[in-house]
Design a protein around this nucleic acid. Structure first.
Length: 842
RNA sequence: GGGCGCGUAGCUCAGGGGUAGAGCACUCGGCUUACAACCGAGCGGUCGGCGGUUCGAAACCGUCCGCGCCCACCA
């Protein structure tokens, strides 16, 4: 047994106010949620918590989904599992980079040496950002996010997350960088990471490559231009939305079965304006019903161009530079005139100029036709992506290897999804991959790619012989650290070395949260106890990124899933049914809610959002939660206030046994629901029982419980037993109020108490006894209501008829209904009560 | 274009072959020795449409409509 009940010490006026401060402090002091790392692996329930981005702010959506995880953590803990529930802060990535830049007025320049005495300017000048080394930049990041992290931690504690705050990590911290680099080096050693120069989706604002997982489509207005190409016999008209790519055109393509163009296949045409001779080719991806059915292939307008270019073995005439402007010099074979007029122009201005030129030369057929079509964007960017050929690092993720893809699909099938239909999103994504995972980013802040390249005699990097550091020196920064066999003065010199300038994609680090939090290779004893984890909770919108990439890393490194189960939470919608987000300005700040209604109330609303289901933000539900919490205080005070329960008190009365039998069913339901990750159903069942317990059972037994003798002892014992069970059933959702009440009469924390079992309740009760008696009481109340009388009004005479009257707890009904004369009549019918009210007393 | 989910009371949602449910809102009544931040009672629905299976369909099957999300090689 967890503890022995003692004489209750109940406040005269119980209140929710101050419970958060009180219990947050106590839980911390008592180490209530401390992970006991001596417990065997079989007892451990480990959770791979999503690290929130600290440069943003927490909103109700966070409270919502983290509460779900916390409720499940608390359930598992009460079931006797040792819960490994760490927290992380995501401070690696663009949002943090921008925030550090703006806050301190600096920018990261990895070519600079580390300055240990650096202090940021007193008054940052946003126009003139001071360049600092990567190490200095990371230090500033840690300094700034330290402040945010304090606020976040305080907030999570107030929400009541049962996190073990001793297990805290940050995604830009040294452990994370080391783990991220180690995993990369292992990928490299096994041939899963590779360097490749290839056309890449490119964001011209951030000037970095981006991965397939970071794309999103946005509807953009544009126009179709019908352009004339010059053939020997006849002109060929194509339609394009990107006439500015004309100098990059390398071929025309139509479908092999397209009769209109069949005779042209194998011939050449000349581009307008530039007169470059290009072939007309056939390819199955050309769609006869799009535009004129024949397309120009440019290097590169979109990803289909890349496919055509690769499969048809076409030359490269790239014209768009890293900054999104047209290159200063035309590609080989393209005449300087009129290209000179386009050099250095943005895509937008180049398009305008090309259209003018086409108009002048007569090669523009008709007027442009306005259209709206989806265009690919980097999810954080605001200009359409271009395709630029660059050298990048990739990790195999099944995008090109059918075997790996099949293995990863099997992993998806092996994983238990809650709710199950979310698996389809994973499969959809894996099946739709069209390339490996591009992990290098041409950014300055982040985890550096841990390789150097030797320089040959002429000072050119030898990319196919990267130099890697030994694992025990990680993390390294190749821009300031030198490779083992070299000295720093050989940097950039012929026969010397150069560091890879790039950093890794943030997902390349956050895909390792189980390894980072679990002490992979840093604390093997811990890691062996927690990995693979039991649960990955996360939002359904990042299945393709976070979930998938974590599965990839664990599969490649450990040959297993990173966790056995994943629980996907939905989003919070504002009352207009839109996703709440900061950019829409419809965010409700959680701290105000927590202060106004109390944490348990907000948690109650959160727990009403079923797994995977988007939920409407609703203060009404929060108020209901607050009412419930207050009711728990008051009902508990009442239950504990009936006087002592004799040591040998036994629950003997049929009504009491009935109530406990019904409760036993609730325990079974709630347990099953929690086991299936359905915290909502568990709470719902418990709550429904609780209100009936208050409205019917308590009313029926209170007068008996005030009395003396075995009947009174039966009621008191039953009440306390029920209270002990109910508090534990509510504890995962409402940790504060349940802990408060528990402390009135029990030792230890309710959150370390054993989850209730049906077996601890007396058997043999007949739930119908309570149901029938409560129904009779309801009918008595109805009669009083109809007579507009007080519930205290005396009933002079009542007749109860029905098939089940034998089960009626007559004495309790008489007392609760204030019935002077009760008559029972068995009849083959539903229960009916005939009530005669006594004349109102003077 | 493909996939997934959702349409039940004014609102937020549960239910999932056997007499339509809860909370909120609304109406009426009640200070009742746990709670007026409370209690009691009531009003309120062709369960998105149409077909089918069945003795019986809100539920199962088909189809259509609407909403949302995910994905897609969108010249």
């Amino acid at each position: 047994m967890t503890d022995q009940p003692r004489t209750p010490d109940v406040p005269a006026k119980p209140s929710l106010d101050g419970l958060e401060e009180k219990w947050v402090r106590r839980w911390d002091a008592d180490g209530t949620y401390r992970f006991d790392r001596t417990r065997p692996r079989a007892d451990v329930y480990s959770i791979d918590t999503p690290p929130p981005t600290v440069s943003g702010s927490l909103h109700v959506g966070h409270v919502f989904s983290y509460t779900h995880t916390d409720a499940m953590a608390r359930f598992q803990r009460m079931r006797g599992r040792e819960v490994f529930y760490p927290m992380g802060w995501d401070d690696n990535g663009l949002p943090t980079e921008r925030r550090v830049q703006n806050y301190f007025g600096v920018r990261c320049d990895p070519s600079l040496p580390y300055d240990p005495s650096f202090e940021p300017p007193e008054k940052p000048d946003p126009k003139r950002q001071l360049p600092v080394s990567r190490r200095n930049f990371i230090e500033l990041c840690e300094r700034l996010t330290g402040v945010d992290e304090k606020a976040f931690e305080e907030m999570w504690r107030r929400v009541g997350l049962s996190v073990d705050w001793n297990h805290l990590y940050t995604t830009i911290g040294s452990d994370s960088r080391a783990a991220s680099q180690r995993a990369f080096l292992r990928n490299l050693k096994r041939g899963e990471a590779y360097l490749s120069e290839a056309p890449t989706l490119w964001d011209v604002t951030f000037r970095t490559a981006v991965a397939q997982a970071e794309l999103e489509d946005r509807e953009q207005s544009g126009a179709f231009f019908r352009i004339r190409f010059h053939g020997d016999d006849r002109p060929v008209y194509i339609e394009t939305t990107r006439p500015e790519l004309l100098p990059a055109c390398v071929a025309l393509v139509a479908h092999p079965d397209d009769e209109r163009y069949r005779e042209l296949f194998g011939t050449t045409v000349r581009t307008p304006l530039f007169g470059v001779e290009i072939p007309v080719l056939a390819h199955r991806l050309a769609e006869p019903d799009k535009g004129s059915g024949i397309a120009m292939i440019c290097t590169f307008g979109d990803v289909t161009d890349v496919t055509w270019w690769r499969e048809l073995d076409l030359p490269t005439r790239a014209i768009i530079d890293w900054d999104g402007r047209l290159a200063a010099v035309p590609p080989q074979g393209v005449p300087a005139s009129p290209y000179d007029e386009l050099a250095g122009k943005t895509v937008f201005s180049a398009k305008e100029r090309v259209v003018e030129l086409l108009r002048e030369s007569g090669d523009l057929d008709g007027e442009p036709r306005k259209i709206s079509r989806p265009v690919k964007f980097y999810e954080k960017g605001n200009k359409p992506l271009e395709i630029v050929t660059t050298r990048q690092w990739y990790i195999r993720n099944g995008g090109r290897d059918p075997e790996i893809r099949a293995e990863l699909l099997l992993r998806g099938a092996e994983l238990d999804w809650h709710p199950p239909y979310m698996r389809a999103r994973y499969e959809n994504w894996v099946e739709g991959l069209n390339g490996d995972w591009l992990i290098s980013r041409q950014r300055f802040f982040g985890v550096p790619i841990p390789v150097w390249y030797p320089l040959d005699a002429s000072g050119e990097p030898v990319y196919d012989q990267p130099i890697t550091p030994p694992e025990d020196v990680l993390p390294v920064d190749p821009s300031s650290d030198h490779p083992p066999a070299y000295s720093e003065d050989q940097r950039g010199k012929p026969n010397g070395f150069t560091g890879d300038p790039d950093v890794m994609d943030t997902w390349a680090t956050s895909s390792l949260t189980p390894q980072i939090a679990g002490g992979w290779e840093r604390d093997p004893d811990l890691f062996a106890r927690v990995f693979p984890y039991a649960l990955r909770p996360q939002g359904h919108d990042i299945i393709r990124t976070w979930l998938f990439s974590t599965v990839v890393r664990a599969h490649l490194e450990h040959g297993s899933l990173p966790w056995s189960d994943t629980a996907l939470s939905g989003w919070i919608l504002d009352p207009d049914r839109k996703k709440m987000s900061k950019s829409k300005g419809n965010v409700v700040t959680p701290i105000a809610l927590l202060e106004e209604f109390g944490s348990d109330a907000v948690r109650y609303w959160s727990a009403s959002g079923r797994p995977g289901t988007d939920t409407t933000f609703d203060t009404g539900q929060i108020k209901v939660g607050r009412r419930l919490a207050i009711k728990i205080l008051n009902a508990s005070k009442f239950v504990l206030g009936f006087g002592e329960v004799a040591a040998d008190a036994a629950v003997t009365e049929p009504l009491d046994l009935a109530m406990l039998a019904a409760l036993s069913g609730v325990v079974e339901d709630a347990t099953r629901a929690f086991e299936g990750y359905d915290y909502t159903r568990a709470l719902e069942r418990t709550e429904r029982f609780f209100w009936e317990f208050c409205d019917d059972y308590l009313e029926l037994v209170k007068s008996r419980a005030y009395g003396e003798g075995p009947e009174a002892q039966s009621a008191r014992a039953a009440l306390r037993t029920a209270l002990g069970v109910l508090l534990r059933l509510f504890a995962p959702a409402l940790p504060f109020v349940t802990e408060e009440v528990w402390s009135w009469w029990r030792e230890g924390s309710v959150h370390r108490a054993a989850w209730p079992a049906a077996a601890e309740l007396p058997s043999g009760g007949e739930p119908a006894v309570l149901a029938v008696t409560a129904e009779a009481l309801r009918q008595v109340r109805k009669a009083k209501s109809a007579a507009k009388a007080s519930m205290r009004a005396d009933v002079s005479h009542a007749v109860v008829r029905g098939a089940e009257v034998a089960r009626l707890a007559q004495d309790d009904l008489v007392a609760a209904g204030r019935i002077a004369d009760l008559v029972i009549e068995a009849a083959p019918a539903e229960l009916a009560v005939e009530v005669t009210l006594a004349p109102a007393a003077g």
